[in-house]
Design a protein around this nucleic acid. Structure first.
Length: 470
RNA sequence: GGCGGCAUAGCCAAGUGGCUAAGGCGGAGGACUGCAAAUCCUCUAUUCCCCAGUUCGAAUCUGGGUGCCGCCUCCA
């Protein structure tokens, strides 16, 4: 069955054909490690994770490269302002390397909690200064770049297709631009490949053009080519990167190689909060830590994201997250019933149909919402059997919800105090002292423990989320 | 100001020309229970922002309107 992916470049779903099957070269624009990644950032990485998993599901072998931007990303993409990491270092009175290391660790911690697979190669910009210098040198030598007083700039007039990815007409864009342009630049959209460093700049390296530091866009080209080169199939990122970052990348790749390097450009839409933009200034800027602090499982957030298609804006609300939390809990319960069920004699007759539908869904430009609906059809519509359980685990290779590790409620850790309360209630129940039993139950409920009396005895669960929303 | 996208039940959302408009959450009723919870069963959009049009047939295509959002400026 063929896999179809929407290519931003052609604005069409295209049949996916890697250049060197079974290998697939996948490059993901990684984080700029100057601050905590927020849940909107994380959507992009859950998306690239799903893409990777679907590729693996289709039996491709993946080399997944992700950059860690720890230098060169200025406060403005128009090559203005300060380096983000350096700025934060000054604020916190630390070195840029300390800042980068700290936020890189946080990023991978959050990724792990969301069951995002680690990239095959995670590469830091500062570890590839030489590669970037070499890249820029070639561009200069071949006449695609020029030097001015503050750095080396790419000359976009050498690349007639500039703007093709985003469908932008440069002349029109110029009208609305509110950025002051560097008067030395030949064209306002020319972008920095290498910046010359002022003496006191903390991060700087020797180069043919004196001490300096790389422009932001060059790292993806240099590292992408270094690690993927001849099988650079897919490049992912958020939609915000289409207009500047990825256009620039295409342009400089062209200058370097004389051809396009990337075959498929795939971009994920933004996550919105309460129907609008997420921004620190609006007070709706959340991180995964915030989600956990409110009592939700990170995996509930993953489930929430999987419920919507990656090319559509998704609207984050606490109510929706609560729904996702509840859904993943119920899903767990169902899955466990299937886990314990025996195999079906002669196999499940309906299984192949589900298998086909599942693959059709995910291979149709990653239609994960449809795939999840299918999971529910099995969970609610079919008798539990080991055959279906094995199939669910198969599906989870794509979904990454951690179905295999799911545990029964009532097996979580609880404090001694809670345990005693539960025992006291059991005694009261034996004496048919309902008033006391119910009062203890209410007490536990306030402590976030919900009791369930079953024929096999009492079970409990910690209540997730919901109780302390906003 | 320029460019683009979206509008499906209380909420999150699939579906882009034709079987009864997926799925989840929430809600209602019932079974079960000492009562609950969990679970199970049933129900929960005659209709897809509005108005025209194309078509045998449209949530899906076209035109107009309204609303929201994004980008062009930091951001995934």
């Amino acid at each position: 069955m063929d896999l179809y992916i929407f290519n931003t470049k052609t604005r069409e779903k295209e049949k996916f054909k890697p250049q060197k099957p079974p290998w697939v070269g996948l490059y993901t624009c990684g984080p700029t490690v100057y601050d905590y990644a927020h849940i909107g950032n994380m959507r992009a990485y859950v998306f690239s994770d799903i893409l990777r998993r679907v590729l693996e599901f289709n039996n491709f072998k993946i080399r997944h490269v992700m950059n860690i931007t720890d230098v060169g990303h200025l406060v403005s993409d128009a090559d203005e302002g300060e380096d983000k990491v350096v700025l934060e270092a000054r604020k916190q009175k630390k070195t840029p390397y300390e800042i980068a290391e700290f936020y890189t660790d946080v990023f991978f911690r959050h990724s792990a909690k969301l069951n995002i697979k680690d990239p095959t190669i995670a590469c830091k910009a500062t570890d590839h200064i030489q590669e970037m210098i070499d890249f820029v040198k070639v561009l200069v030598d071949n006449g695609y770049a020029y030097e001015i007083s503050d750095g080396i700039y790419f000359d976009i007039s050498t690349f007639p297709n500039y703007g093709q990815l985003s469908g932008i007409d440069l002349e029109e864009q110029r009208e609305g631009a509110r950025v002051e342009v560097n008067p030395e630049k030949r064209h306002p959209a020319d972008f920095a490949l290498w910046k010359k460093a002022p003496k006191n700049h903390i991060m700087q390296w020797p180069s043919p053009w004196g001490m300096g530091y790389p422009g932001w866009h060059i790292e993806c080209s240099a590292m992408g080519l270094k690690y993927l080169d001849a099988f650079f199939d897919i490049h992912t990122g958020g939609v915000d990167h289409i207009p500047i970052h990825h256009e620039n990348e295409i342009a400089q790749n062209w200058g370097f190689k004389g051809r396009e390097i990337v075959k498929y450009w795939v971009h994920s839409e933004f996550l919105q909060v309460d129907g609008g933009k997420m921004a620190k200034s609006l007070g709706n800027f959340y991180t995964l830590d915030d989600i956990e602090e409110k009592g939700y499982d990170p995996i509930a957030f993953r489930y929430f994201l999987l419920n919507a298609h990656y090319r559509k804006k998704v609207n984050f609300t606490w109510e929706a997250l609560q729904g996702a939390q509840k859904a993943i809990e119920r899903l767990t319960e169902h899955v466990l019933k299937f886990k314990e069920a025996p195999p079906m004699e002669g196999g499940e007759p309906g299984l192949e149909g589900y298998r086909k539908s599942f693959k059709e869904a995910v291979n149709d430009d990653l239609n994960v919402p449809r795939a999840i609906a299918l999971i529910w059809d099995i969970l609610r519509g079919e008798e539990p059997s080991q055959d279906y359980y094995q199939f669910l685990l198969e599906c989870d290779r794509v979904l990454g919800l951690g179905l295999a590790e799911m545990e029964k409620k009532g097996e979580e850790e609880i404090s001694e105090e809670i345990r005693e309360l539960i025992e006291r209630r059991e005694e009261a129940r034996k004496k048919r002292n309902w008033a006391e039993a119910d009062s203890i139950r209410d007490q536990l409920l306030e402590k976030g423990i919900r009791l369930m009396d079953t024929p096999e005895g009492v079970r409990w669960e910690k209540i997730k989320g919901g109780e302390n929303n906003d």
